[in-house]
């Protein structure tokens, strides 16, 4: 199955397989946050619009919102995070994913960056 990964300026990644997008935060984002001590995830069935606050991730220092990079219906939240917040620090771009959603409009993916563009973005902004 073809799989493609997109990135946002808010330091999220979106892995698309078929009609399902898996969403998490990048390694850069977790390094900026520091040790994660709490996460609040969206419930399955919730309809999210692109740009809407979808999850909250809290480090020792501060709370940060995670925005839906694309619109869709949440199919699953990563329950493994609830018992092991440290997955977000240890494996942010794999096991530390936040939630999956069913894409409402695949056209929105066109507004996101690929890895090379995100790496350039990091060089300019980080």
């Amino acid at each position: 199955m073809s799989e493609k990964i997109y990135y946002t300026k808010e330091h999220e990644w979106v892995r698309v397989e078929g009609n399902i997008a898996t969403i998490g935060i990048t390694d850069f984002a977790q390094s900026q946050l520091g040790d994660v001590v709490f996460v609040e995830l969206p419930e399955a069935g919730r309809d999210l619009k692109a740009g809407e606050a979808a999850a909250v991730v809290e480090s020792v220092k501060a709370a940060s919102e995670v925005f839906a990079p694309v619109s869709g219906k949440v199919t699953q939240a990563n329950e493994a995070l609830v018992d092991s917040f440290s997955l977000i620090n240890e494996a942010p771009e794999s096991d530390g994913w936040f939630f999956k959603l069913e894409l409402a409009n695949t056209g929105e993916l066109g507004g996101l960056m690929d890895r090379a563009a995100y790496d350039d973005f990091l060089k300019e902004h980080a």
Binding site: G34, V60, N89
Partner: peptide, 9 residues
Amino acid sequence: VQYPAGILK
């Protein structure tokens, strides 16, 4: 604000 070990450690 922190070193590489992180705030928890």
